[in-house]
Amino acid sequence: MANIRNLDPSASPLDYYGSELRRLREEAKLNQDQLGAILFCTGSLVGQIETARKVPTREFSERVDAALLTGGLFSRLVGLVLKSQLPNWFQPYAEMEAKATYISTFQAQVIYGLLQTPEYAREILGARNEGVDLDAKVAARMERQRILDRDTPPLIWVVMSEAVLHQEVGGREIMRAQLAHLLRMQEREWVKIQILPFTSGAHAGMPGSFTLLRFEDNPDLVYTEDFVRGHMTADPAAFREGSLRYDHIQAASLSVEDSARLIARVMEERYGDQHAMA
């Protein structure tokens, strides 16, 4: 049976997307199964998206645009829909992240979000989010990464603790793919990755991860998180302190070239095929 739940288009971006999908599908005189066949998905999925029970992907949206000749409407809407799947407290940061011209971050425990593979992100996001729509959460994180493919992407300089490479998230295959992804990303001239080695001892990043955002037309920001929510401030004193700490962390880290070699070595020695056969 077709989903016929009525939506309030003003309730959320997801509701608006669903109501527009239904409206344009009906204008095209297609039922849900017929549109699903054109999109290479089930009519049930079309119905779930039309009733805001399922979050659409960017691929689905592009196929809808092609099938219904919408002029790119759903490809534009899906960005808003996926952004709305981010935690409310995180959305202001994501908006500023997308505007930044220079992002520098220290990550003590996990791979930086903009450099995560979907599989790694799923493990991280699912660790304490039982019952949530993980597909939607992962899609939202991948949507954030689209800033890396802009014509003029931000310069991103990432320093990560060596511990991040050894923390086995999701198993060896996921970690091997994640570390391989880091090496591929480092080939982009605007992405730099350094590893803070275990041998550095006590360092300026001991209090935890943080991110610095720099802009052309906005005040610089420093962002931190605790286990409840994130904290973003444009306070100049806080930004100066973050910048100073970041400089000290960078100075204690391996060079970009040596960091790439360490990532490759850990990938082969810890997560390679020979390790699996041992």
Results as ranks from 00 to 15, higher is better:
Gln107Thr: 06
Gly242Ile: 07
Glu20Met: 15
Ile249Arg: 03
Trp190Ile: 05
Asn88Val: 13
Ala98Glu: 14
Ala121Met: 11
Gln274Ser: 12
Pro236Gln: 06
Glu119Gln: 14
Leu125Lys: 02
Val256Lys: 12
Ser19Val: 06
Arg184Ser: 14
Ile156His: 00
Phe60Ser: 02
Phe106Tyr: 15
Lys29Cys: 06
Ile38Cys: 00
Trp190Tyr: 14
Tyr271Thr: 06
Val78Asp: 00
Arg58Cys: 00
Phe40Pro: 00
Glu187Asn: 08
Ala278Val: 14
Arg270Ser: 13
Glu168Leu: 11
Arg229Leu: 11
Tyr271Lys: 05
Trp157Met: 00
Arg176Lys: 14
Asp151Met: 07
Leu69Ile: 04
Leu7Pro: 06
Ile249Gly: 00
Pro13Ile: 12
Tyr223Ser: 01
Arg245His: 10
Ser104Gly: 04
Arg172Val: 09
Arg188Ser: 11
Glu62Val: 06
Gly47Val: 10
Arg23Phe: 09
Ile4Arg: 15
Thr70Asn: 05
Gln194Lys: 09
Gln145Cys: 02
Met185Gln: 14
His166Val: 06
Val222Ile: 15
Arg229Lys: 14
Glu97Val: 07
Met232Glu: 03
Ser255Gly: 13
Leu221Glu: 08
Glu123Arg: 08
Leu213Met: 12
Gly205Ile: 13
Leu244Met: 11
Asp149Pro: 00
Gln34Met: 09
